[in-house]
């Protein structure tokens, strides 16, 4: 199974990035082959809708699960629209979360925060 995690660095020991849309890299990990791959998150520098674009990127990477500390409403719509499950990370590192995920100990992310798009300008 292929899973995605937003990470700060191109390493499996990297810390998990607190923002999915703005993460510099997206780690794609294959739990069967144990191969990892890092995709540059082009959304990180975009003007708006970063979550949507990052979500499109991981959907296109053909994953079955996303492991992330948080996820915006729009991104969640894209991810769930592609029948991908979203799990909440509990460990600080990517590798730590992969381990607990494989052990089946991560739970689904139930709290989706509303978007901030265009709302910064109050």
């Amino acid at each position: 199974m292929r899973i995605a995690i937003p990470v700060d660095e191109k390493s499996i020991d990297s810390s998990v990035c607190q923002s999915f849309g703005r993460a510099p890299y997206l780690l794609i990990y294959d739990t069967d082959s144990k191969a990892s791959e890092f995709i540059d998150n082009k959304a990180a520098v975009s003007q708006g809708g970063a979550g949507i674009k990052a979500a499109q990127t991981v959907v296109d990477a053909n994953i079955s699960a996303l492991l992330t500390p948080r996820c915006g409403e729009n991104a969640a719509q894209v991810i769930k629209g592609a029948s991908i499950k979203i799990y909440k990370t509990i460990d600080a590192t990517a590798l730590g979360n992969i381990k607990v995920f494989i052990d089946g100990e991560l739970s689904l992310l139930d709290e989706i925060h509303p978007g901030f798009h265009g709302r910064g300008n109050r």
Binding site: S46, Q47, G49, Q56, V59, N74, A82, G118
Partner: peptide
């Protein structure tokens, strides 16, 4: 269209274009 939109208001999932009106 998805690649063009610099506001990322468009996504293509499950063979369908999705438009985020508020974005």
């Amino acid at each position: 269209c998805v690649d063009f939109c610099k506001f990322n208001a468009l996504a293509y999932i499950n063979g369908k274009l999705k438009i985020f009106n508020e974005v």
